[in-house]
Design a protein around this nucleic acid. Structure first.
Lengths: 214, 214
DNA sequence: ATATGAACATACTACCGAGTATGTTGTCAA
DNA sequence: TTGACAACATACTCGGTAGTATGTTCATAT
């Protein structure tokens, strides 16, 4: 119990830093966020952060890793359902879009991480650290592509290029990280309705029939 | 002729800087791009840049302004065509998407400018400088919303919330600035096909019938 | 009781990058 | 030819930031 409490403290402190760091990275981006900014928002000093993370890059990567882990955690149960491809894709899309809304600050960092990698705007050590995460990301994307392909083979979807289509679909599903901001008095139902619009847009874009998308 | 040549030189030098700056901002983002980076890529030094632009912020704003001007220039002739709303929207969307591909480096800065404003990650002087541009951007967006609304009233489109839908549509149309990269040996036809896919995705997402979107 | 180490804070260093101050060169005007 | 100015280059300043080195405190183990 003592050890347990000790680990709890460690994990909590660790997670607190990650969460605040995600907030800062969301607001200002990686480059414009200073460790002191994060520390200030934590009501602490650099010492605390550098005790847990060896560098700013490692802190950022940890945020990205956590964000991507959230995606997997949310998708995994849906993925295991025994449903026809389009149905499953629809559920996966909804789960993903909702997560984007609920964990926006983390997912913004995930996005920036992907962008940093794509633009190759990194030092070698940053690149190496992100490399692993990008493979994970690719695996995640593949989960969706599988259902996309299956649904097209079924005749339930209609699109030309798989890669392009996948990009377009994810752009729509990810988009709330750019334009969503919580409304005062917003309910779970409001969010679900928002998610519904996003998924409907995406699936129709993919060529799903209106009977399916409502 | 002397005056003309002089102005030509000025404008050319000015535009050269803008173009290279756009490249740099695209690769590394505003915060991570240094004036020295831009100068180096120009084969020049800071002196040249600061002779034309009073500050890094002003340089960035100039890039954004130029990018947005390109949008208006491309859209304006299409907008004046006498076509039914959905037809016009489709042409406007195609023109916009194609411009995103062709002037990707500028449009990335436009995007970042909008993001900076939205995240309020700026000094007061930056904010003021961007304020004007954001109004221009809003006007541009309104051109599309007008056709969206008209097409829906016609029964040619089907969507719930105009604002959300507008966001989703622009996410799709803008998306090439994130994932497009020119293929070796790529032809105009290839690009047009790509644009076709993007527009098809967007219009279907908006609820256009398959008879229209093909 | 005391030693030990985790979890921080404090106080530095070193560097980088925005902005400035001051040359230097060529061009045109009178 | 010379003076004036545009269009840069060079050489600085100076504030901010990543990272480090060194306390300090508190809990736990022995």
């Amino acid at each position: 119990m003592a050890a347990n409490a000790g680990e709890m403290t460690i994990d909590t402190s660790h997670m607190d830093i990650l969460s605040v760091a995600a907030d800062c990275f969301e607001k200002s981006g990686f480059a414009a966020t200073s460790i002191d900014d994060v520390a200030r928002k934590l009501g602490a000093t650099k010492g605390r952060i550098y005790h847990h993370f060896p560098s700013k890059t490692d802190l950022f990567v940890a945020v990205v890793r956590r964000g991507m882990a959230m995606c997997y955690e949310v998708i995994e149960p849906v993925r295991q359902l025994d449903l026809p491809p389009l149905q499953k894709l629809s559920r996966m899309a909804a789960a993903h879009a909702k997560l984007m809304i609920e964990t926006k600050h983390f997912q913004r960092s995930v996005w920036e991480g992907v962008e940093m990698h794509r633009r190759a705007a990194m030092t070698p050590d940053q690149r190496e650290a992100l490399e692993e995460l990008l493979k994970t990301r690719e695996g995640y994307s593949a989960l969706f592509r599988r259902e996309l392909t299956a649904a097209r083979d079924n005749g339930d979807l209609d699109f030309e290029n798989l890669s392009v289509t996948n990009q377009l679909m994810f752009m729509a599903l990810n988009s709330p990280i750019f334009w969503y901001s919580p409304r005062p008095g917003e309910t779970e139902t409001d969010i679900n309705r928002l998610v519904g619009q996003i998924v409907q847009f995406a699936l129709r874009g993919l060529g799903a029939s209106k009977e399916f998308t409502g």
